[in-house]
């Protein structure tokens, strides 16, 4: 009885990071908004680095509610696609393993606090991923994780699985 030698950690990390970078790079709107994704194992954290053109209320100043809504929606979509691609990434599949993006059916955004002119972070929790529909809860915060800025619940139409 001998089990195969585990892959070197660097090889595994490079494969995961390359897949994540490919996924994110597919969407022009993500680079326009400057969103980034950080990874720890399979957990993703969306980052919206502060930029003056994200402001929606110059008097306060506060981030535009629409920019925050977009950040939550993008984090939910990337997290869903990532979770679909993850088994293929781990299996070491090469080639085009990234699925098409799910389609947003609806998104309910709950504005809890005004967005400060600082970086924002977001994590999505996939409450249910069925064959056709998925429900995702997503939350964003800034300086203090316990004081979320916005939260949202969304429903998504899943793409056909990659053959």
């Amino acid at each position: 009885m001998s089990r195969p030698k585990p892959e070197p950690v660097q090889v595994v990390k490079e494969r995961r990071d390359a897949a994540l970078a490919d996924l994110v790079a597919r969407v022009p709107y993500i680079s326009f908004m400057g969103f980034e994704f950080e990874r720890r194992g399979d957990e993703l954290t969306g980052v919206m680095p502060y930029r003056p053109d994200l402001i929606g209320n110059p008097m306060l100043p506060a981030l535009h509610g629409g920019a925050l809504a977009a950040f939550l929606e993008v984090t939910a979509l990337i997290s869903l696609s990532w979770s679909m691609a993850w088994p293929r990434i781990e299996a070491g599949d090469t080639g085009d393993i990234l699925p098409k993006f799910p389609k947003t059916i609806d998104l309910t955004v709950d504005y809890l606090r005004s967005g400060l002119p600082r970086d924002s972070y977001a994590r999505a929790e996939i409450t249910r991923a069925g064959r056709r529909y998925a429900s995702v809860r997503v939350e964003a915060w800034q300086d203090n994780r316990a004081r979320p800025t916005v939260q949202a619940m969304g429903h998504f139409l899943m793409p056909e699985p990659v053959a």
């Binding site: 535009h64 629409g66 920019a67 977009a70 950040f71 929606e73 947003t104």
Partner: peptide, 10 residues
């Protein structure tokens, strides 16, 4: 992207 449409509607 839907996010841009959300920003417009907001």
């Amino acid at each position: 992207h839907g996010g841009a449409i959300s920003a417009l509607m907001d």
